[in-house]
Every structure is written in C-alpha cells, then in structure tokens.
Design a protein around this nucleic acid. Structure first.
Lengths: 253, 253
DNA sequence: TCGGGGTGTTGCACTGTCTGCAACGTTCAT
DNA sequence: ATGAACGTTGCAGACAGTGCAACACCCCGA
C-alpha cells in the first residue's frame, strides 16, 4: 500500500538470506542504486540493518531487541508461564505454549524437563501447522469459512507416514478436534515424538492459545502420554480462567 | 533520510512497548490517522505487525523469523559453536560468544553448563557494554579515534561498586585490555559473577568477536577462574584460525 | 428506538518527498 | 598509470504519500 515502505521492508527478508552489497540489493529490488542506498540508510538508522566491515549489509541487532520485547509483552505467555512450569514439574515432559497468527502458528514458550528455562530457539520458525497438536486446536476454533480458506491454502508435507496428507483429511481432523476439545499428534511430525494438547480460551470462549506436552516414544508410550490428558486440560483451564479474569492470580484486592 | 520509511519504522519500537490502536499510533507519530493506517497496513502485509482480535496492533511473527534467520547466518557463530561446547564440557561453566555492532555489543551464542542448548533469551538486550569482559575486548580493538568517540558517548551506570565509573577510567581499562589481549569482569555487572574473556580475530588480525567464561563466586573464586584463561585463549585462537581459513575444520579437500 | 461519541475506513486534490539520472570520489586489481 | 567496480552526492521532475473531509460502523446511554 505504500511503495517506499514496501520496498524498504522487502530488503529485510532479502538480507536474511545473507549479507549483500548495495548493487545486489538494488538489483533484487529493481530500483536504482541511489534509491536502495537511501532505503538502506533509513533502515540502518533504525538499527534494523547493520553495515559490516566489508561494507556489505546484514540484518541488525535492533531486530533481536524488538523480537524479544514483543515476546515479553505477550500477556498470555506471562500468565501461562508459571502454570507451564508447574505442569512440567508434575509430569516431567516438555511443555509448549503456542499462538496463531493468520495461518501460521508459533511457539511462544517452552519448558523443558531437565532445565526449566525458556528457550526461544524455535520461536519464529513456523510450527508444522498441518500436524502439530497445538496448531490443530488453534485452527479448529476458526469460523467455518475462514478455517476452510486457511486449510485449502496450506501445503501438506509428509514429514512421516502419519502426517496429514491433504486439506480434506485436515478438515476432518479439525472437526474431530473441535468437537472433543483437545488434540494429539502421534508421530505426525517426527516418527518417535508424540504430543497431547489442550486449548486456552479467552473470556469470550474463543481459543487464544494452545499448550501441549510432548515426549519421545522411548520414554512413554502414546497411551501413557494420553493418560496425562486430564492434567494438561486442567492446566489449560486454569490458565484460561486466569487469562479471562475469572481467577485473579495474585493480589486479589 | 526517507521520511515515509522513517515513520513506518518508528512504529515498531512503539508497538514493542505493547499493543496500540490506530489513534495511539497516529498520535505518537504525529501524523494523520489515515497516514498511520496506510503505514500499518504495509507493515502488516510484510508480517512485521499483527492485528489482534480487538483490532489493536502488535508486533508480528515475521519479526521473530527474521531475527532467527539473521542469527543463523552469522558465520562466526556457526564456526565457534562446537568449540564453545567443547570448552563448556571441559570447564563446566557458562560460555558466551559476542559481537559488536556500532557501539552496542550483543551475545550471539551461549552454552550453559547444565544444559548445552543455545538460548537466545538474552539476545537483543544490549550487553552492559561498560563492564562486560567481551565488550572490553571488542571496543579495545577499535582504532584510537573511533574508540574515543564511542567511549565518550556511553553512559556509565554503577551496577555495582566495581563498575567502570566514567569514560576516562574505561579508556584506561581498554588500553590495558588491548595490550594484554584478554579481559576480565570481576563483579562489575553483578556482585557475585566473574568473567574472563578472549578475542577472536579474523584473517587481518582485527577482533571480530569475543568469548567469555562466567561463573558465580560461590562456585569458583576469581583466581580459580583466572586459571582457566589459557584454556579460554586456546579456544578463542582455535576459532580464529578456523574463521580466518587457516584451519579447515572438516572436509580438508 | 434513537442519537451521539468513539472508532476505523475511503476518495480526492495538492504538495512535498522520493526517484532516477549523471557526474564525482574512492578503492582496488591490472 | 589505467581502468573497472563500487559507493556517494545534487538536482529537477514526477509521482507517491499526505491530510482533509465525509463516510461507515459499533457501542453506549437516553
């Protein structure tokens, strides 16, 4: 909608592929060198782009700062975190928290069994939206029309033999998930990893986030993991209550 | 340098503070609502901004994706990582890798003693540049004039009684560091945390990154930590060699 | 049911900002 | 020395971005 900004922002993914010099940037954008220079300068002033010693440009540090700040300001995450930790202490497995953004789903928190520290390593990289248990919950909650539209546009990579093969199969799966109010992924992403997930709902009942417990086959069987479902749902419900203001966490005054 | 882009980019830090509606954004930017709307739309199309269900805007997922991609494209980090892991296995303490960007220094990798996973949790938040051992190394290598200019512009917060108090003191410290080729931080940032650091140099001898080992007082004394210096320097040198192409890591054909 | 204040949105004419050009400066390699 | 390749600057013209005003919408209280 705004040409100049559009061009400037197009530079970012371009640089994400690796450092590039002025000529290359101008070429890829299809604009004159001087134009590219001015855009890069503006990006540079805002710290989104950095000029390394060989004069080539690459993405800048402010990008990390912004990503981190944004992360810390997600209210669901803040509310959910202590609950996730508690669940992790109880069951010992890896716990994930995820939200949807248009047709993408991303993890915004994770508690690992052995070392209870938030790691953002997988954040940003889109979750495998056609197979992940949390993704199913988040998509299943969309209104019929939107859900259909999103599902049709997706790719269906066969990570394993048990991956969701196509849109029709996914819609069916989503219908099931929608009805039962929880979801699983049994080896659909990685052969030996299973997940069970439950939705977190806002005051209006809509799904605002989803959480899951994951564990490899070698540690617990799919059935044993499924036995944890009640615990997962209890946690998700507790977060829902707190998030929608029904249960003031602390400071009940 | 480019007004439109400048305005658009100014929105990002604004949204990093938390979600905001159109009016608020327009107000903070000092532009008409319609202008702000168009800018936000453009940002939205690029996925840098997301519109949540209550119509307010917040930072979007593409930002995380970009930050992560940028991170993965840092060649120093890639080369250094296995060395950091090895050092961590040997000494057991937390190992950091950092680079400089203008007058900021940021961690780009970390290996923690108990759980050897890269965590990006601190990435983006600028390192305490006036006290961190890695920052000293990176600034000490700047040419005289530039170093002076940078140092004068810094703030000197007194994190502890042993923090660098002012520009003069810092210049002196940098001179020492420059000469001896390594750096320390003994409780300058947090009272009970000590660090020793060594520089990583490119083919031209300039410092391209710095690495450090940190440990709390209660685990090892400052003297004991200092005894690890040779090991840290050997690691840093090994990374330097590989980075500057003197030691092909693998595939020597 | 009606109106008022608060949003976000659209179309339009104007002007100011961005664009591409061409010339210059620099740094390399030959 | 000479040339090529690259980044940089100033300028005039054109077009993209701006602000305005009117519109559409929602929620609230009357």
């Amino acid at each position: 909608m705004s040409q100049t900004v559009d061009r400037a922002l197009s530079i970012l993914p371009l640089l994400a592929e690796g450092p590039a010099d002025l000529g290359r940037v101008a070429g890829r954008l299809g604009v004159h060198k001087s134009t590219a220079l001015r855009l890069l300068r503006t990006l540079h002033e805002h710290g989104l782009v950095y000029r390394q010693s060989d004069q080539r440009y690459r993405l800048g540090a402010r990008l990390f700062a912004l990503a981190q700040e944004a992360m810390e300001n997600l209210d669901v995450r803040e509310i959910a975190h202590p609950h996730l930790v508690r669940l992790n202490e109880q069951c010992g497995h890896t716990v994930h928290l995820a939200v949807r953004e248009d047709s993408e789903v991303l993890y915004i928190d994770k508690v690992d069994s052995r070392y209870p520290v938030r790691m953002y390593s997988r954040i940003g990289k889109p979750v495998a939206v056609t197979v992940a248990a949390v993704a199913k919950l988040l998509l299943a909650d969309l209104p019929e029309a939107e859900r259909r539209a999103v599902v049709e546009k997706l790719d269906y990579p066969m990570y394993t033999a048990r991956s969701t093969p196509n849109a029709a199969a996914y819609l069916k799966e989503l219908a099931t998930v929608r009805e039962q109010g929880w979801a699983t992924d049994f080896g659909g992403h990685e052969e030996s990893i299973n997940c069970v997930a439950a939705p977190i709902r806002g005051a209006d009942g809509r799904v605002v986030a989803a959480m899951s417990v994951s564990a490899p086959n070698v540690v617990v069987t799919a059935d044993e993991l499924l036995a944890l479902l009640p615990m997962v749902r209890r946690t998700a419900d507790a977060i829902s209550d707190e998030f929608s203001g029904r249960t003031p966490a602390k400071d009940p005054a």
